[in-house]
């Protein structure tokens, strides 16, 4: 008897992805990464028994991590994106974090999440406790402000 697709034991899945998840959460929520880490894998565990495929488990768990990070910001009154450029190897991202530092909080968060993390406006809206449109607006006015500043 051979199963064509079999989901690995949660233990192996966890061992394989936990460091990457933790690094991503450090970038997204900084010092709150430990709580977000636990929440991410608890959520993964809730869905794990219903998984029907084993492709892209990394992408799957990263999506959960980003949602947890988004919820984390939503819970806060004043969203602040904690950026740790020294732990992020993507030069464009580090630069973006620095550039965006002077922006109003909401715009900064929208710009960083959109252009640094490729999050959808819907997700960013959720993270900031506002609508998708408001997120799009915050990001574009943030970008406009940056442009003005760079001229």
């Amino acid at each position: 008897m051979m199963a064509l697709v079999s989901v690995p034991p949660f233990e192996s899945f966890y061992e394989e992805h936990r460091d990457a998840v933790f690094r991503e959460l450090r970038r997204l929520v900084g010092k709150d990464a430990e709580d977000a880490y636990q929440e991410t894998f608890l959520r993964a565990l809730r869905g794990y028994g219903r998984l029907k495929h084993t492709e892209n488990l990394r992408a799957w768990v990263m999506t959960i991590a980003r949602r947890v990070a988004a919820d984390h910001y939503r819970r806060r009154e004043a969203p602040v994106v904690v950026v740790e450029p020294e732990t992020d190897s993507r030069p464009a991202y580090a630069e973006l974090g620095e550039l965006a530092d002077g922006l109003p909080r909401k715009e900064r968060a929208a710009v960083v999440l959109r252009y640094g993390y490729d999050m959808s406006y819907a997700a960013i809206g959720a993270a900031l406790g506002s609508s998708e449109d408001a997120a799009r607006q915050a990001a574009s006015s943030g970008v406009r402000r940056l442009r003005r500043r760079m001229q």
Binding site: F10, R18, D19, F22, R23, R26, E34, Y37, Q38, F41, L42, L45, R46, G49, T87
Partner: peptide
């Protein structure tokens, strides 16, 4: 950057305590 043993253990115990494990 890797997950500290403390954080790792914390998650494992939380998962068990939450009754999420087979």
């Amino acid at each position: 950057m890797t997950v500290s043993p403390t954080l790792d253990a914390r998650f494992r115990e939380a998962a068990a305590a939450a009754g999420l494990l087979d």
